[in-house]
Simulated scan of single mutants.
Amino acid sequence: MNKYLFLLLFLTSCGSGDRKIPSQPAAVRNDSNVGAYVVDSAMGRLNGVYVGMSEFELSSLRYPESRGVVRLEGDDYVAIDVSIDGKVPIECILAGDGSVERFSTASSLVHDERGIGVGATVRELKMAYPAGRLLVGDEDGRFARFVNGSKVVFSLDKSKIDDVCFDNPVEKCKVDEQGVKVERVVVNRHVY
Rank of each mutant, 00 (worst) to 15 (best):
112 D>Q: 06
142 R>M: 02
140 D>M: 12
109 L>R: 12
38 V>M: 08
67 R>P: 11
68 G>N: 05
21 I>E: 13
5 L>A: 12
32 S>M: 09
83 S>N: 14
156 L>I: 05
69 V>G: 05
49 V>Q: 00
114 R>D: 07
93 I>F: 05
101 E>P: 04
108 S>W: 04
177 E>M: 07
182 V>N: 01
111 H>M: 08
30 N>M: 09
158 K>T: 15
11 L>Q: 11
170 V>E: 13
71 R>K: 14
36 A>Q: 13
49 V>F: 00
190 H>E: 15
25 P>R: 05
112 D>V: 02
139 E>I: 10
189 R>M: 14
144 A>W: 00
105 T>K: 04
100 V>D: 02
95 A>W: 02
137 G>E: 01
42 A>K: 12
70 V>Q: 09
78 V>A: 10
115 G>P: 07
57 E>F: 00
152 V>I: 02
157 D>C: 03
71 R>P: 05
68 G>T: 08
89 P>C: 08
68 G>S: 11
8 L>S: 13
167 D>R: 11
190 H>W: 13
124 E>F: 03
37 Y>L: 04
168 N>Q: 12
18 D>P: 06
86 G>W: 07
69 V>C: 08
155 S>N: 13
164 V>M: 07
165 C>P: 03
2 N>M: 12
141 G>S: 02
106 A>V: 11
191 V>Y: 15
158 K>W: 06
97 D>S: 08
82 V>W: 07
68 G>F: 07
169 P>V: 06
176 D>W: 06
155 S>E: 15
130 P>Q: 02
98 G>I: 03
169 P>Y: 04
105 T>A: 02
29 R>K: 09
27 A>C: 14
15 G>M: 11
49 V>A: 03
141 G>H: 03
99 S>P: 04
172 K>N: 08
160 K>L: 14
140 D>P: 00
159 S>D: 11
40 D>Q: 05
55 E>Q: 15
132 G>Y: 00
183 E>M: 09
183 E>G: 02
117 G>V: 01
172 K>Q: 13
191 V>E: 15
139 E>D: 11
79 A>N: 12
75 D>V: 13
35 G>V: 09
8 L>K: 13
17 G>V: 09
49 V>S: 00
32 S>K: 08
23 S>K: 15
153 V>Y: 02
56 F>T: 15
110 V>H: 01
56 F>R: 14
157 D>G: 02
9 L>Y: 14
99 S>D: 07
118 V>Q: 02
96 G>K: 11
95 A>L: 06
4 Y>A: 14
20 K>S: 15
42 A>G: 07
151 K>P: 04
81 D>T: 14
13 S>V: 14
99 S>T: 15
11 L>V: 13
1 M>W: 14
174 K>Q: 10
30 N>Q: 09
78 V>F: 07
68 G>V: 06
171 E>D: 11
101 E>H: 07
81 D>R: 10
129 Y>Q: 04
186 V>C: 13
190 H>Y: 15
187 V>W: 01
157 D>W: 01
67 R>V: 11
185 V>P: 05
65 E>V: 03
122 V>D: 00
177 E>R: 10
124 E>T: 04
2 N>W: 12
14 C>R: 10
45 R>W: 14
190 H>C: 13
19 R>K: 12
145 R>H: 12
142 R>V: 06
122 V>G: 01
127 M>S: 12
51 V>K: 01
32 S>H: 10
14 C>W: 12
61 L>Q: 01
151 K>E: 01
83 S>Y: 12
17 G>S: 11
12 T>P: 10
145 R>C: 07
10 F>C: 13
